[in-house]
């Protein structure tokens, strides 16, 4: 089943001389269970595509369907709830809340959704990510890799239909990068998690089931 169907999506920033076409008439489909890597040079539009899929930006033209529902027709609140319940996001710079500890950061979307906290699930996720012994630590007390694991945990906690990861290893050393990618790969295999990851690293991209290459806002390879 298609999780995402992107139809002729374009995204233009600015006007006149400052006009930038970030995405130019892109179309693609994402199936459940896929592990997709999006690669491309800097400024090719990869992050823009990811943001549009996450509902953080609206396309200038074209439609994007999430499980058959047109995201352009959803309100800001509906898109936010969508991210809360169905789409997990992982950023390059972790974007954890600095005043909340590991456990509290992971539980954020659950608490916003007023769901009852499944302590068992939380424990399993932290175990899976190997951060159980850091659960009361604040982000500034963790290494980069550990912080990124917390971000993954936050994304996994909501049982998302899809995880969107924007250069999750971009700020990490090789060892941590490998750890993160392995975790994502494992989440995809064991938990049948659909994952889209943006990366510059071809080695990481090769681990994916499908590679999409974007250049100058167009898909060159799929």
């Amino acid at each position: 089943m298609n999780i995402f169907k992107v139809e002729n999506v374009s995204k233009v920033f600015g006007k006149g001389e400052a006009k930038v076409v970030a995405l130019d008439n892109i179309s693609l489909e994402i199936e459940e269970g896929e592990f997709i890597a999006i690669i491309g040079p800097s400024g090719s539009g990869k992050s823009t595509l990811l943001h549009i899929m996450a509902g953080l930006e609206k396309p200038t033209s074209g439609d994007i369907y999430f499980y058959g529902k047109n995201m352009n027709e959803m309100s800001k609140k509906e898109l936010t709830i969508l991210r809360r319940e169905k789409i997990g996001i992982i950023y390059q710079f972790y974007n954890l809340i600095p005043n909340l500890n590991v456990e509290e950061n992971i539980l954020l979307p659950i608490e916003f959704d007023r769901q009852k906290v499944d302590k068992e699930k939380l424990k399993n996720i932290m175990k899976f990510l190997n951060i159980e012994n850091r659960k009361t630590h604040l982000p500034n007390e963790l290494s980069g890799g550990q912080q990124q694991k917390v971000a993954i945990g936050r994304a996994l906690m909501i049982n998302p239909k899809i995880i969107l990861a924007d250069e999750p290893t971009g700020n990490l050393d090789t060892k941590s990068s490998n750890e993160i990618i392995n975790l994502l790969k494992e989440a995809n295999k064991k938990l049948k998690q659909t994952i889209i990851i943006i990366t510059h690293n071809l080695e990481i991209a090769k681990l994916a089931d499908r590679i999409i290459k974007i250049e100058d806002g167009k898909i060159n390879l799929n």
Binding site: L56, T80, R83, N95, P98, F112, R154, I158
Partner: peptide, 14 residues
């Protein structure tokens, strides 16, 4: 930035 993060993980404007 913090508010943006919260919004991106599901905290509505309200």
């Amino acid at each position: 930035q913090e508010y943006a993060i919260l919004n991106s993980v599901g905290g509505t404007e309200g």
